[in-house]
Amino acid sequence: MAHELENEDPIKLAEFQAKIDAEIKIEPKDWMPEAYRQNLIRQISQHAHSEVIGMQPEGNWVSRAPSLRSKKILMAKIQDEAGHGLYLYCAAETLGVSRDQYIQWLHEGKAKYASVFNYPSPTWADMGAIGWLVDGAAIVNQVSLQRTSYGPYARAMVRICMEESFHQRQGYEIMARLMEGSEAQRKMAQDALDRWWWPSLMMFGPHDSDSAHSSQSMKWKIKRESNDDLRQQFIDKTIPQAELIGLKVPDENAKWNAETNHYETSDIDWDEFWNVIKGNGPCNRHRLAHHIKAHKDGEWVRAAAQAFAMKQNNKLKIA
């Protein structure tokens, strides 16, 4: 990235940085360094893909939801995620890349999505844990991104955050209901927390010292807070929520430190983190294969819609 910056006009670069420092949003038609554009193309598309791939683990339970209310809530939540994917693809398209191209990059493995969705959702309690922990972690990150320097991304985040906070509460409600239920239900809830706790903490990315994109992203205010700071905010918020309903996070070393006013926790198993990112998580192959299949199955529908639109256009021209 440093090499690329050397090719940029130093005066324009200085003006750009001055705007960022003055908290003026960068808009699509404004000049921006190529590295800034590339960084956003990577980050926003990854975010969009995450929303869309994230529909799968929850879609896994929508046909088995146990009540009319929970079925409706889950469907509405997944629908929100699809909507978030749309806002984000639109924001990403303002950077000069089409949605088709982004999807192609996803299918070719050139673009990533949040690794957390490569874990399975074997029980109904996973619908609670995903909402509470995965959406809860996403909110911490996204609240921070509402102040990101790229205008379309920041505005998409404002809308998304409003809906995500509902999701988090809905997820927590599922967990709370399970904890008020039978022994089997309580066991189900604890098991889901045990499985989702560490993947949720991994969502904030590697330690700041190991993060490839962090320092330049902070300078350009694409990122506003460090991975470790955001992770700590999430830990501090979530452990008391778990305790309140009788759940215990799966970390023997988790304890409150009155001096720092933060919880201390064990370190993350980074080997697992990198292994799942490299494609070796329980569901990586399946998640991508599902998306590719749906896209391929829909090819004839998209072709028909396009052919029909062209026919209508020609009719209008003749008329």
Binding site: M55, A82, A294, D297, V301, R302
Partner: peptide, 15 residues
């Protein structure tokens, strides 16, 4: 219809 979630020909149609 709930079974078809994430299987639509494109995102708008899924929604």
């Amino acid at each position: 219809l709930s079974e078809y979630i994430s299987c639509g020909p494109f995102l708008e149609e899924d929604l």
